[in-house]
Design a protein around this nucleic acid. Structure first.
Length: 940
RNA sequence: GCCCUGGUGGUGGAACUGGUAGACACGCAGGACUUAAAAUCCUGUGGCCAGCAAUGGCCGUGCGGGUUCAAGUCCCGCCCGGGGCACCA
C-alpha cells in the first residue's frame, strides 16, 4: 500500500487516510508564515522559560539520540502555553570550538563557513520534527553581535574583585580607594597572600607595581601558572577538559606546563556555588558531582618547626582534616616540588633526594595515575610535633600534591590507609592512638573512636578531640581552623583561533581593557591556523593584530555558553547584553534540559557568571536554572554478522558454537542496523551495501533466515548503529517519531534505541484518525451529546495527561492516550464534544495531527491558542464501587458499596459481616480496616 | 575504595503517598478479510497445577532476613549492572 507508507495523498480532498507528511508540511509552513511561535517580552500572562542546552553544530548531524531532550522540552513548553503561560523557548548554537578549527586545519575550510553549513543542516533536521522554538531569538556564540557582549561581560569580570567582607564581587575602583587609605591589611591578596602593604607603600608603588597587585585581585585575571598543556591541540585545557591525563577531545596527551594564562577566580565563589545547590532542583547525582568538584573540606593548618642542617628552625605548615590525630603523627611528607625540600635536606641524603625528584619529573601525569606505586625518600630532616615536641622524620613522596593544601602533610598511619601503606613499605614504626580499634595490620579511618596515647586528648572521642586540638593550636599560635577546596581557578584562555578575542591591549607588561566603544573586537581573518610562537595562538602570527599589542589568546568554548540564556531574553539589544527589565521579567530558566556531561563544565561556569552579574547589579537573580532535568543517553543497538575467517561465507548467529562454526574461526563485523529487522538480516540490502563490497557473499541460514548478533554500544557512525531521525520522519511522520521517542521510557533514563516499536505508536495515531474520518464517508464525527461513559474516558485522560506531563512522565502520558483512543474506539465514539478536547490534549505531543484534527472539526485559527481542557471530577466519580475484601490477609471476594455509604461505618460493618458469614466459619470481626478507595481488610 | 543510580514477563517499560503486580506497546500464537501476501481488525499471552468449561489453587518484582492485616514500595544484611570521583591529606 503505497499511500499508507509514503503518506502521500492522491488528491487533496482525500481525507480518509492519515497523510502525515502532507499534514506536517502544511502546518509547519503555516506556523512559519503566521509567526506562531514568536514570544513577546510584554505580556500579562505569567512567564515560563524552557531551555535546551544549545548544540555544538558538528558536521555529523543529528541521530535519534539528539532530539530526545528537545522533544521533552518542546512538549513541556507547548503544555505550559496551553495552560496560559507566556513561554520562552529559544534555540541557538554554541558555535565556537575546537572541532571546527581542527577541520579547518585539515581541510582548509574557514571555521565560519563549515559552521554555517553545519548549522543549516541542523536547522533542517530540527525543523523536520516540528519544534516550537522562537527562531527570531536565535543566537550564535560566534556572531560578533553576540560575542561583543561576551567580551563586555569579560571586561566586567576583569574590572571587579571579590570583597570577602561583603561576600560579593564589586568594582575594582573600590579597591583603589581602600588601598589608598588602609593598604591591604583588611583585604588579603587572594592571588598571593604574601603580598602585604600599607597605604603609604601603595601610593609609592609604580603604575606597573600597582597594576600587578590589582591583577591578583581581579575576578578575570592573567597570571603564570601550571596549566594542562596539550601539544597536539596546541592549547591549554581546563581541568574538566582533561580526562585520565588525556584531552577530552581527541584523547591527546596532556602535560603540566607553566604559562601565562587568563583565569577566572571561581575559587572565591566556591562556598556560594555550594550553597546555591540547596536552592535549585537538580538531581542528587548532579549536585553530588558539583560538590565533589568543588571539594570543600574542613580541617586545620598546623605549623611544625623543622631543624635545618644549618641549625636554624623553619616553620612547615601542613593541612589536615584530622587534627584530632596529631599525637599519631609518625612522619611528615612534602610534595617533591615543595619549596622547603632543598633547604631541609641533609648532606647525607642530598643525592638520594635529587635522584628521587629526577625520577618523579620523568614520570608523566598519565603514568602517575595509572600505577599508584608507593615511592618516596627520606630527607634526613626532622620536624617537631608542636604538642609534644616529638621528633618526626620528613619524607618526600609523589603522593602528596603540591597544588593542594600546603603541599605538605602530617602522616598518621594508624588512621589513614595511604599513610599506613607508606609506613609499612618503608618500615616506619606506627604509633597506635586508637587503642583496640587499631589491629596493627591496617589503618582504621573511622572518625568516632576514643583516643589513647594522645596526651591531653586521651579518652576523648574524635569529634570532641577535633575541637579541643584546634582550640589548643590557636591558643599556642601554631595553627588554626582552615577550609580547603579542591577546585582550582578556571583556566580561561586558549591558544587557538576560533574563539572570542580578549578585549585586552598590553603595554609595558600591563593589561589595559579596551574601551567599550571598541567592542566587538572582531576576529581577524587568518590564512594559517598554526599556533604562534611560545605557546601563543594563531593570532600571534598576524602582524596587524600584534602591532596593536592585542592579546593573542582567545576565550574557551565555555565563555559564550556561560550567559546565552540571558541573551535569548533580549537577543537584538545593541545597547546592553540584556535589558534589566527584560531579565527581571523572564528571570530564572524554569526548566533546563540537557545531558549530564556538562556537570562540572558549563553548568558550573554559567552559575559563576550569573552570580558575578548579579553581584555587579546587572541581573536580579543569582542562580540561572531553577530546575534541571538530565535526559538519558540513547545508546546504539549494534548488529553483527559473522564471516568465516578467510572466506566470503556468513554464518547465522544460532549456528555458532563457542565463537566458532564447524571448528573454524569467525570474524564479527558491524552491519548497518538500518537493514536488520529485529535480528533478521535483509540479505539483498546487505549485498548492495558499501558499493557491493559483499555482493558475492554466501550465507548459511537457519530456518531460511540470517540472524544477526546484537550488542548495546554508544551510537556512532563507525559502528553503523546510528539511526537518522530524517528517515523515521519520512516513513512515519514527525508526530509518530516524537511520541515514540517519549514512549521509549523515562526521559532521564538511558536506553538503547530500537526502531521496532515505532509501528505501535504509528498505529495509535491512525486509530485516532479513524475516530474523525472513516474510509467510506470521509468525516465521521458528529455533534450529538456525549454519554456519561464517553465523558468519563475523556476526563480520566485529561487528568492523567495533566499529571503526567507536569511530572515529566511522558511515556505514561503516551500510554494514557493509547488507552483513551482504544476505549473511544470500543465505545464507537465519534462525538465532536469529546474529540475536540482530545485534539487539544494531544497538541504538546503530536502538534501536527492535533492541529489538523482540531481544524477539521471546524475551529478557526490554531490549536496553539486553545486552552488546556479543564478536568471535572464529576465525570469520573463512581456512584458505586467494587471493593476487594481480604479476610485474614487473604483476598477472598469483592463487595459493591454505594459511594455515599463509604462514610457510614455501620453499613460497612453490616456488609462486612455478610462477607464474614460467607467466608469464615463464624467468629466475629476483630479488626476492620477500610482505606477509602482501596481495600477492605478483615481480621476475624 | 568512596558517592550517586538502578535490578519487575521473551523485550521496552507501568504501578503517585504500602492496598487486586505486569498499564501501554513490541514480540509471539490463533482467528477474520484476501487466490496469496502486505495492511487492517479481533482474541489470547508471567510461571506451574487441576478442569470439557466458565473457573479455581499455588508460586512469582536480584538474594537472605524483618516490620505490617497487607511490601515491587518501608527497615537490616548481601549480590549484580550503569554513571561519577579517585593518591585532595
Amino acid at each position: 500500500d503505497y499511500h499508507r507508507w509514503s503518506g502521500q495523498a492522491t488528491t487533496i480532498t482525500d481525507q480518509m487516510e492519515y497523510h502525515f507528511r502532507e499534514i506536517e508540511r502544511k502546518w509547519q509552513q503555516r506556523w512559519k508564515e503566521t509567526g506562531a511561535y514568536k514570544v513577546s517580552n510584554n505580556s500579562d500572562k505569567p512567564k515560563f522559560y524552557v531551555l535546551d542546552m544549545f548544540p555544538y553544530p558538528s558536521g555529523a548531524g543529528l541521530h535519534v539520540g539528539h532530539p530526545l531532550g528537545y522533544i521533552a522540552s518542546d512538549i513541556f513548553a507547548r503544555f505550559k502555553r496551553l495552560k496560559g503561560f507566556n513561554v520562552l523557548h529559544p534555540m541557538g548554537y554554541d558555535a565556537f570550538g575546537l572541532p571546527a578549527e581542527q577541520y579547518a586545519i585539515e581541510h582548509g575550510v574557514h571555521p565560519a563557513i563549515s559552521t554555517e553549513q553545519n548549522i543549516a543542516n541542523f536547522r533542517r533536521q530540527l525543523d523536520n520534527i516540528g519544534f516550537c522554538f522562537d527562531w527570531s531569538r536565535e543566537v550564535r556564540t560566534s556572531d560578533p553581535g553576540y560575542y561583543k557582549w561576551t567580551q563586555w561581560i569579560f571586561l566586567q569580570l576583569f574590572g571587579s574583585w571579590y570583597n570577602r567582607k561583603l561576600n560579593k564581587a564589586v568594582k575594582i575602583e573600590s579597591l583603589l580607594q581602600i588601598f589608598g587609605t588602609e593598604g591591604n591589611i583588611n583585604h588579603s591578596c587572594p592571588g598571593d597572600p604574601s603580598i602585604v602593604f600599607s597605604a603609604g607603600e601603595w601610593r609609592n608603588f609604580s603604575e606597573k607595581e600597582q597594576q600587578d597587585i590589582l591583577m591578583h585581585y581581579r575576578i578575570a585575571y592573567c597570571g603564570y601558572g601550571e596549566v594542562n598543556w596539550c601539544e597536539a591541540l596546541g592549547t591549554v585545557l581546563a581541568n574538566d577538559e582533561v580526562v585520565n591525563g588525556v584531552s577530552e577531545r581527541g584523547g591527546y596527551p596532556v602535560v603540566k606546563k607553566k604559562l601565562r594564562q587568563w583565569y577566572l577566580r571561581i575559587t572565591e565563589y566556591a562556598d556560594r556555588l555550594l550553597e546555591g545547590l540547596q536552592r535549585v532542583e537538580f538531581s542528587e547525582a548532579m549536585k553530588e558531582m558539583q560538590s565533589n568538584w568543588i571539594g570543600k573540606s574542613t580541617g586545620a593548618e598546623i605549623e611544625f618547626q623543622v631543624k635545618t642542617p644549618g641549625g636554624t628552625f623553619r616553620p612547615l605548615r601542613v593541612y589536615t582534616t584530622r587534627p584530632d590525630t596529631i599525637f599519631g603523627v609518625d612522619f611528615m611528607v612534602l610534595a617533591p616540588e615543595h619549596e622547603l625540600v632543598s633547604e631541609v635536606t641533609t648532606a647525607a641524603r642530598r643525592d638520594a633526594v635529587e635522584a628521587y625528584i629526577a625520577y618523579v619529573n620523568s614520570r608523566s601525569e598519565r603514568e602517575r595515575m595509572a600505577e599508584k606505586k608507593i615511592s618516596g625518600v627520606f630527607t634526613g630532616a626532622y620536624a617537631l610535633n608542636p604538642l609534644n615536641n616529638r621528633e618526626i622524620p620528613i619524607w618526600i613522596a609523589e603522593y602528596v600534591l603540591a597544588g593542594y593544601g600546603t603541599g605538605a602533610i602530617m602522616a598518621v598511619p594508624s588512621g589513614d590507609e595511604r599513610d599506613h601503606r607508606f609506613a609499612r613499605h618503608f618500615n616506619i614504626p606506627v604509633t597506635n592512638i586508637l587503642g583496640e580499634a587499631y589491629n596493627g595490620e591496617e589503618a582504621n579511618p573511622s572518625k568516632d573512636i576514643p583516643l589513647s596515647n594522645s596526651g591531653f586528648l586521651d579518652g576523648l572521642r574524635m569529634p570532641e578531640a577535633f575541637e579541643a586540638v584546634v582550640h589548643k593550636l590557636e591558643e599556642l599560635g601554631v595553627g588554626e581552623r582552615k577550609v580547603n577546596y579542591r577546585m582550582r581557578d578556571a583556566a580561561f584562555s586558549r591558544q587557538r583561533y576560533w574563539g572570542e578575542p580578549f578585549p585586552i591591549r598590553w603595554e609595558n607588561g600591563i593589561a589595559y581593557p579596551l574601551d567599550e566603544s571598541a567592542l566587538p573586537l572582531e576576529l581577524p581573518k587568518v590564512d594559517s591556523y598554526q599556533p604562534g610562537p611560545e605557546g601563543e595562538g594563531p593570532l600571534a602570527n598576524i602582524s596587524s593584530w600584534t602591532e596593536r599589542n592585542l592579546e593573542t589568546n582567545t576565550m574557551p568554548g565555555y565563555a559564550g555558553s556561560s550567559w546565552y540564556f540571558l541573551r535569548y531574553m533580549d537577543p537584538h539589544n545593541d545597547q546592553a547584553f540584556c535589558d534589566r527589565k527584560v531579565s527581571d521579567y523572564w528571570n530564572q530558566v524554569d526548566l533546563y534540559i540537557g545531558g549530564t556531561e556538562h556537570a562540572v563544565g558549563h553548568l558550573l561556569y554559567s552559575r559563576l557568571w550569573t552570580k558575578c552579574l548579579y553581584d555587579l547589579g546587572f541581573i536580579g537573580h543569582d542562580e540561572p536554572y531553577k530546575r534541571l532535568v538530565n535526559q538519558g543517553m540513547i545508546q546504539g543497538s549494534s548488529r553483527f554478522v559473522y564471516r568465516v575467517n578467510g572466506t566470503n561465507t556468513f554464518v547465522s548467529k544460532g549456528l555458532i558454537v563457542e565463537d566458532k562454526f564447524d571448528g573454524k574461526k569467525l570474524d564479527s563485523l558491524h552491519v548497518d542496523v538500518n537493514f536488520v529487522d529485529g535480528l533478521v538480516l535483509d540479505i539483498d540490502a546487505f549485498r548492495k551495501w558499501r558499493n557491493g563490497e559483499y555482493a558475492d557473499a554466501e550465507f548459511i541460514l537457519e530456518d531460511g533466515r540470517y540472524y544477526c548478533g546484537a550488542e548495546v554500544e554508544k551510537m556512532s557512525k563507525s559502528k553503523f548503529n546510528t539511526v537518522n531521525p530524517d528517515d523515521l520522519v519520512n516513513k512515519y511522520g514527525a508526530d509518530t517519531f516524537r511520541m515514540y521517542e517519549m514512549f521509549l521510557g523515562p526521559v532521564e533514563q538511558s536506553k538503547p534505541w530500537d526502531t521496532k516499536g515505532i509501528e505501535g505508536v504509528h498505529r495509535f495515531l491512525r486509530k485516532l484518525w479513524r475516530l474523525f474520518f472513516d474510509e467510506q464517508n470521509g468525516a465521521c464525527w458528529n455533534d450529538s451529546k456525549a454519554t456519561a461513559a464517553e465523558l468519563k474516558v475523556l476526563h480520566r485522560t485529561i487528568r492523567k495527561i495533566e499529571e503526567d506531563t507536569e511530572r515529566f512522565s511522558f511515556n505514561t502520558a503516551v500510554a494514557a492516550f493509547m488507552v483513551c483512543v482504544n476505549e473511544l474506539h470500543d465505545l464507537k465514539c465519534h462525538k465532536k464534544e469529546v474529540l475536540e478536547q482530545l485534539a487539544v490534549l494531544l497538541t504538546p505531543y503530536a502538534p501536527h495531527i492535533s492541529e489538523e484534527l482540531w481544524n477539521a472539526l471546524g475551529n478557526q485559527g490554531s490549536v496553539l491558542d486553545a486552552r488546556f481542557p479543564v478536568f471535572e471530577e464529576k465525570y469520573v466519580a463512581e456512584s458505586v464501587k467494587e471493593y476487594p475484601v481480604s479476610v485474614n490477609g487473604k483476598l477472598r471476594t469483592t463487595i459493591t458499596i454505594a459511594l455515599d455509604a463509604q462514610q457510614a461505618e455501620v453499613e460497612k460493618l453490616v456488609l462486612a459481616n455478610e462477607v464474614v458469614q460467607k467466608w469464615t466459619s463464624g467468629g466475629g470481626i476483630k479488626k476492620f480496616i477500610f482505606v477509602p478507595g482501596k481495600m477492605i481488610n478483615l481480621v476475624v
